[in-house]
Design a protein around this nucleic acid. Structure first.
Lengths: 202, 202
DNA sequence: TTGACATCCACACAAATGTGTGGTATATAT
DNA sequence: ATATATACCACACATTTGTGTGGATGTCAA
């Protein structure tokens, strides 16, 4: 899949119409609606445009489904997800669903059950785990965690903290920071959930 | 059109399925897709449900148009966002709208200003900036960046890398890793965008 | 000159799709 | 009693819709 493929003015016009329809009606147009709007007399022409735009990564098409046009750029819900560019042939258009990051689906399963909340991280006690001051930690609510998992825990003073949970042989637990300047917490604490995601905004 | 009309459990089930489809695929379902999902053997049954839900103001229907179902009572996908010093346990409900993280709006502003894409981070060259192997970097496409900003850059060998951009006095630039094991990159490179967010899933 | 790409067309066809008609049954309110 | 709403079904039908096939022309790089 090529990265930044230029789009021709005519392709831009087709794309603009689709975007306009989606924004206005919340419903992508059919092939014939595009043809009528852009002045094409053949459905095949529109199909060629859609295939070209899909190949360039501007939209995604469904198979044999009406109106199955999904915009990928200028649409914050779904982002193109690229890995390291393989040196050689970077121009295949493969329909790998893992090529896209769907923001709506990021936590859809968990949040549908209503057991997810977000926690703003304060301090640098987890910097060595890549968790920085100001990060947003997404937590799935649950009363315990496995050893090594990063959990949100409620301390005695009603403060919520993010630490790595460690099990001891005797069934005891403690909380370990990912920063040598912070001592482990062995006092009483309650696990309120496990970390499932970190979101940071710059 | 009446609002706040009660709907029956079965109507709720149909509505939930539509909402799920719209959130997941950005495409409303067809009548027959609803029938299959909700266990109806007749398309007429679904039409009756859609008419009932439309009459109650929960959705709007188009005429003779496929998938023309427009939800009128949306569900913003929001997460409770609590700070590090909560006034109580996160189980308590305090309904401040600023206490919610709206996933749909996470990158709406940035994507309005330009194209946004996601890049899967490879390697540990930015660990000291809290960016780890496997993280998803959200990049706003732009051809340059300010000194100190973390940018995605295209190297000579067509590899995309994430580094901190540094300006020199003479108008020259170089890329600096956030890991002392990696030397700065002063060879030819092209900035393709600036980092606006990091997303990590556990 | 070959190939890839862009830019169009016409027409056919199967499948998908919304709608229409005519039922059955239960419950509830007027 | 009558009307209204809910909750289904089967089947037919006309359209809508995406796709397939087979062209055409031109540009541009290798």
């Amino acid at each position: 899949m090529k990265l930044f493929v230029k789009i021709t003015p005519k392709q831009q016009r087709v794309l603009d119409f689709i975007r306009e329809k989606v924004n206005k009606d919340n419903l992508p147009p059919t092939i014939r609606e595009i043809a009528a709007a852009c002045g094409f007399s053949s459905t095949g022409t529109v199909r060629d445009y859609l295939d070209a735009l899909a190949k360039k990564g501007y939209l995604k098409r469904g198979n044999n489904k009406s109106r199955a046009i999904e915009l990928l750029q200028g649409n914050p819900q779904k982002l193109r997800l690229i890995g390291a560019i393989p040196a050689g042939t970077p121009n295949e258009a493969h329909e790998d669903p893992s090529d896209y990051l769907d923001l709506k689906q990021l936590f859809s399963r968990e949040s549908a059950r209503g057991e997810v909340f977000a926690l703003k991280v304060k301090g640098d006690s987890m910097v060595n785990a890549g968790i920085m001051d100001g990060d947003i930690a997404v937590i799935r609510k649950q009363p315990s965690g496995q050893s090594g998992e990063i959990v949100a825990a409620l301390l005695e003073d009603n403060e919520v903290t993010l630490k790595r949970l460690k099990h001891l042989k005797q069934g005891a637990y403690f909380l370990e920071a990912a920063n040598e300047n912070y001592p482990p917490i062995e006092k009483e604490f309650t696990v309120i959930g496990v970390l499932i995601s970190i979101i940071r905004k710059y």
